[in-house]
Amino acid sequence: MGLALGELLQMSEAPHCHKLPGLSAGQGRICQLYQDHMLAVASGAHQALLECRHQFQHRRWNCSVLDELNVFGPVTSIPSRETAFTHALAAAGVTYAVSRACRDGHLSSCGCSRMGRPKTLKKDWIWGGCGDNLEYGYKFTQGFIDVRERERKFKKGSRRQGQSLMNLHNNEAGRRAVIKTSRVTCKCHGVSGSCSLITCWQQLSNFREIGDYIRDKYDGATEVRVTKHGRLKLRNSKFRLPTANDLVYLEESPNYCLRNVSIGSLGTQGRTCNRTSIDLDGCNLLCCGRGYNTLKSTIKERCQCKFKWCCEVECKTCIKSVELHTCK
């Protein structure tokens, strides 16, 4: 994506496209056409970044991004699992945000309105079958995100071409994750409120659930290679063929133990770990066997809280003593 988010999110009005660094030429053109969508695109990317950090808070690679300005930075230079994840998540974030923005009526070309709708959306006869903003978000994101991969041509079978194919596949997986996790809700409104007439609509799920879904896909991602004819093929033919919902990657990830900016690794030094866990967040794995420091302290914490609509949380204060472990 490479949008300058910090700058963007502070603007209340639609930003000017030429001020946005990181847009490709094609994206710039779409930006000109759909200026009002850009705030949603930016907030979607930002949400994806936060979600990425949440999903990977206990792993060696904790969605390390070098600075706020370049959301998905150098990690994209190697076609690893993590790259697959970030692409899918960014596509999901934008799909989600555009769909959501449609629903508060601020975008000019959503759903049923005729102006600038993607041509592939279903025809309506005064609002029949066009109220679905999820479909709109999907189509818009397809145009906006994928154009980046399509505007450069690489030699068939080259590494760059493979990476481009991989990105396209993972973008699609991300968009589909939003649809897959959405729920269908129905309402009966026929004679006497009976179900002789029933209407259903798609309900976006919480972005946390979308993040969980894509994280599951990350854990089960498939390794592929690019053939001479410029197509993706399974590296190990014993594995199941990935569907459009699954993530694919071309190269194994580095171990992310040591700091190496060129591969997008910050290293795990100084990270807090869980001494008792044998999982990825356990000190043994997270610190790559370098050992850890322990710090004992007492902290005050809010507990037994009760929420009162709209703006109050009544809590008690608890005092806990905790041990903090950090990697050497």
Partner: peptide
């Protein structure tokens, strides 16, 4: 000829 009998719009309240 006809579209679906009923349609819906999800409006995010401000």
């Amino acid at each position: 000829v006809a579209p679906s009998p009923a349609g819906s719009q999800s409006i995010l309240t401000t």
